[in-house]
Design a protein around this nucleic acid. Sequence first.
DNA 1: CGGATCCCGGTTTTT
DNA 2: CCGGGATCCG
Length: 651
Amino acid sequence: MTYTFKPIPPEALSSRIDYEQELNPAQYEAVTTTEGPVLVIAGAGSGKTRTLVYRLAYLVEQGVDPGAILLLTFTRKASREMLTRAVHLLNRALGQVMGGTFHGICYLWLRQYGERLGYPKGFTVMDRADQGDLLNLLKERLGYKKLSGPFPRKETIAEMLGAVVNKDLSLDFLLTRDYPQFLEQRDHLAKLAAAYQDEKRRHALLDYDDLLLEGRRLLTEHEDVRRHLSNRFGYLMVDEYQDTNRLQAELVQLLAYSHQNVMAVGDDSQSIYSFRGANFRNIMDFPKLFPGTRIIKLEENYRSTQPILDLANAIIAGARDKYTKCLFTRRADGTRPRLFRAADEPEQSRLVVSQVQALVDAGTPLSRIAVLIRAGYHSFALEIELMRASIPFMKFGGFKFMESAHIKDLLAHLKVVANPRDTMSWNRLLLLVPGVGRATCNKFNAQVKAGFGLEAGIAWLRRQPPKLQDLAGLMESLNGPGHTLMTRMTQTLAYYEPLAKARYDDYPKRMKDLEHLLTITARYQELQAFLNDLTLEPPSSLADVVAPTDDYLTLSTVHSAKGLEWDAVFIIWAAEGRFPGFYSQERDDDMEEERRLMYVAATRARNYLAVVFPHTGYSRQFGMTINSPSRFIADIPRDLLEPWRAEVEEW
DNA sequence: CGGATCCCGGTTTTT
DNA sequence: CCGGGATCCG
């Protein structure tokens, strides 16, 4: 038998997809409405991603230049996945479609047009930890460290500043409502905030919020840029719209100003990012922002069985706010969700392990099972039990690889190459040298003026005592010609390794992380892109390539599980004080969000859902505690949620 | 400058 | 009750 290969003619391609056949009527309407503002209210599992993917394909088939499409998603991974699926669907490349997060897109435009706003090309994007470091520095400089009376910690200050921007509040209002205990520090906090702004500007630093704020400023103050970008991106699609905030909505509006072609997709009952300024009501305001909006609801659920959907509906039915749609499914079969009560946390862990093993024995691949948690630390005990049982797993959310000290140490050396004015990174790398402390840093900081360059830094190091000459040599080499990102990285690692060895007793584990970082480095050519990608898209999603095996159990925070699905899902620590967390008991809005979070968790499951809680717990603070089941499932009738008793054989 | 000691506070969730 | 951070002292 012989095969011959020929290019597929364009006519064959364009007729490949039978949209009407492959989509339900509501999805079809959403896909084929290409002009004007559209709001798609897409319930959990209703084929939201499918709709976006088909719409991408449809637009391209209609002759829209892929380069005119901008896809805004919550994570870059999500946009990558959608683009990949669209490519498969169309069977042709879509290289020109632009996709990413609001932060990522703003970053790109600020790099392109930043000079218009007074930023140098090599600005640095700060992560949360960088923000804390800078605030600490300023707190000390302003003499607020030894103020009498309560003064917020740096994390709290960062949170407050973020709330002012993302929730569009005044500092006074925020303090009065959320932090009355710090109201008396009002003037100090205002001064600190001003100093923070000033310092960032002088050292070419932008935090996450600045990316959005300066992105908006770019579009409002520079009419030509706005016109250019709006004309270039004639078709906007925004995913997870329920998790955008006012500022992001304004960005969409600015971008759409010349054509109003925006499709926003979201689900108000899955809004779980209010701590970042998102408000589930924002999505209902979309039609006000864009008059003439066509509203399309996707209410058929293709994911879950009826018993699982019944439980999910019961969870959300208890909400204070009534949401806009009602889900139904045709998957009437299936077993009832189970409520497992375990005696304590070890038993909860063993129970999950044995249930997972039972599912695997019954034919469910490990990769289609997930354990969902409210907070990262809720799975610590389970992780140990999984290791003991030799069940491979990957954990998503919670722990921040990028914020661990050794990663930041190493990257500090590269960051000052990209932005020599980044004093905080200078200080960090100086403090690593034995015998260098605050005094040396202060001397160094006194030298840093506007326009400070790497050469000046190296020259300064050369004038210092011998202990700093190794560092000087490294920096000279990093600055020298003929180095790729990879060689710079390995040089830095060679320099840093002995320092880390002396510094950390868990040094071998940390070196493993650094090697992991090297594999990520290999994908980049350019230093600055590498550094900022790492800040904007931390390796939990970049790291998927290093999975030891592709058959692993998923452990994930509910937040990180958003938009995903598994055949079988366990929700653990479904106990009062954990899920919902006790910190959400004070405000109704927070408690409502916990409920939506539980709803999101439950709707991740296709066939099997188990809710687990340990009846007793142990905390350092209170010793032994008695846990009640989470209020979201406590009152669910047993025909919707079947109580099970743990039966785990001791061994 | 760096180790030791004391004291406060207490865990979300992510770009 | 434990850990991180600030402060103190050698």
